[in-house]
């Protein structure tokens, strides 16, 4: 196992870089971070739409979330591979394709996490803000979102772990991230699949487990802060949509 690591370690870490394009674990991380950053605004928009006072917007967002939840990510990746060139007119790289698919996917899942955080805020927050004459948008921007986004930091980190794991599907359409590296090492060695995939699993495990632990630490911080800052009872069905405007 150590000889595999010493011979192919660099390939697993950075792919062909610097002789070729960056790959391996570095690409896995790059794709994950890009997907999270791009999915975030989409997710916030989806969460706001899901709690919108306008029924048509709520329904459209619910349709999007249900559709995404209803099909495998792999299928979304294949769709992206097919649809993106039709939209942009050029063939996208597998990396871009997977990032786009993950944005569509996480827009729904991260969006639901943010929606849960929005709805968990006491209804009194909206009441108080609207009572001061603040508009729906100002209430969202200044009062609701800052609190909700802080409260859902742990679930955002969990979504990041999911994204990291999901980038492993990128090898199927040819992105040379860490799973791709492992597959090509396995193809070269032929007789040592257990060691190769054990190493691959270990790499993901170390990365994702540390991130999960970190998210638990953050969760405790958030919980502590929340129990300190609010002595308001949590009402069960608070919603921005409930205040007549």
């Amino acid at each position: 196992m150590t000889e595999i690591l010493s011979q192919y370690g660099l390939l697993l870490l950075v792919g062909q870089f610097p002789d070729g394009p960056i790959g391996g674990l570095a690409l896995t991380l790059l794709m994950s971070v890009a997907a999270l950053l791009l999915a975030f605004p989409v997710a916030v928009a989806v969460a706001i739409a899901r709690t919108s006072p306008i029924p048509a917007i709520r329904r459209a967002a619910a349709f999007y979330v249900t559709a995404v939840r209803g099909i495998p990510l792999l299928l979304i990746i294949f769709w992206a591979f097919f649809v993106l060139p039709l939209v942009t007119g050029v063939t996208s790289s597998p990396e871009i394709t997977v990032i786009c698919a993950l944005v569509v996917y996480e827009g729904a899942y991260l969006g639901e996490a943010i929606r849960a955080a929005l709805e968990a805020l006491p209804k009194g927050q909206t009441d108080a803000s609207r009572s001061l004459g603040m508009s729906y948008t100002a209430t969202l921007r200044k009062v609701i979102l800052p609190q909700a986004l802080f409260n859902c930091l742990p679930s955002m980190m969990n979504q990041f772990v999911l994204i990291v794991k999901n980038t492993s599907l990128a090898y199927i359409i040819g992105a040379q991230e860490v799973t791709f590296s492992a597959n090509s090492i396995n193809a070269q060695l032929l007789t040592r699949p257990f060691e190769v995939y054990f190493i691959l699993a270990a790499i993901y495990f170390i990365l994702c487990y540390s991130l999960s632990r970190l998210s638990r630490v953050v969760e405790n911080r958030v919980l502590r802060k929340r129990s300190r800052v609010t002595n308001q009872p949590i009402t069960e069905t608070p919603s921005l949509a409930r205040v007549p405007s």
């Binding site: 772990v161 794991k165 999901n166 492993s168 599907l169 799973t179 492992a182 396995n186 007789t191 040592r192 699949p193 257990f194 190769v196 995939y197 054990f198 691959l200 699993a201 993901y204 495990f205 994702c208 487990y209 999960s212």
Partner: peptide, 18 residues
Amino acid sequence: RNVPSIVQIFVWYFGVPQ
């Protein structure tokens, strides 16, 4: 929970028989 499902499948299909 911390290893992608597809890697788990590889470990079983390619790795374990070895």
